[in-house]
């Protein structure tokens, strides 16, 4: 079972990963975006960690709803409402439970990913965060390790794709050959699930 602490650790581990990779995310966002993805997400997840410490939400669902709301408020770029919607909708799908099963979490995260696709209008293959998140959710039933690997592969596979959403889509064919920054940060978010599970010695596997 996954408890409130697991979800708090997930957010903390994501914030640490975003800190660690911020320069790389911004570098990926330079040729095809506006070179702010790393710093935007860093600001957002720093605020998420601060607000979780301050408000100490008591259920898995409220951890994610609060985190999502904070991202929408603080990021300043398109990744704010997109990641915010992902976490908030996932949190709402978890309901009021004090602990959730891994299968229930996988279903909730799928609802979150569906909400991201509805908000941004992106489908798999459009060279967006969806290309990491959809395979990750598909593999989440197996293990966090499998989900992390699927997200990483999905992110790497965006290099060959032509962008069809967001600012990168203005570049047309010139967007090919660059890994998508949003898919890359999505892979960090999914990889942080395993870290959160390992930190407690909880299963998750």
């Amino acid at each position: 079972m996954l408890d409130t602490d697991f979800f708090r650790r997930w957010m903390t581990a994501t914030a640490a990963a975003v800190d660690r990779e911020a320069e790389r995310l911004t570098a990926l966002d330079s040729p095809i975006g506006d070179a702010d993805h790393g710093s935007n997400l860093q600001r957002g997840f720093t605020a998420v960690v601060a607000t979780l410490e301050k408000e100490a939400p008591g259920t898995p669902g409220t951890v994610l709803v609060l985190a999502g709301r904070q991202l929408i408020s603080t990021v300043g770029g398109a990744s704010g409402p997109l990641y915010g919607t992902l976490l908030r909708r996932t949190g709402k799908a978890l309901g009021e439970a004090a602990e959730v099963g891994e299968e229930q979490f996988a279903d909730a995260l799928r609802a979150g990913v569906d909400a991201v696709m509805a908000l941004g209008g992106a489908a798999p293959g459009d060279k967006t965060m969806v290309d990491a998140l959809v395979p990750a959710v598909d593999a989440l039933g197996d293990s966090f390790t499998a989900a992390g690997a699927a997200a990483e592969q999905g992110a790497e596979a965006t290099t060959a794709l032509q962008a069809r959403k967001g600012r990168a889509s203005y570049l047309g064919e010139r967007s090919i050959g660059h890994q998508d920054p949003g898919a890359t940060s999505s892979a960090l978010l999914i990889a942080a699930l395993l870290e959160a599970a390992e930190d407690s010695g909880a299963s998750g596997e």
């Binding site: 709301r69 929408i72 300043g76 770029g77 398109a78 990744s79 704010g80 409402p81 997109l82 915010g84 919607t85 908030r88 909400a115 908000l119 941004g120 967001g166 600012r167």
Partner: peptide, 14 residues
């Protein structure tokens, strides 16, 4: 465009 549209949509969904 972009984040302006998505932010308003996300706020409305809230």
């Amino acid at each position: 465009l972009g984040s302006a549209v998505l932010t308003v949509k996300a706020l409305l969904a809230e």
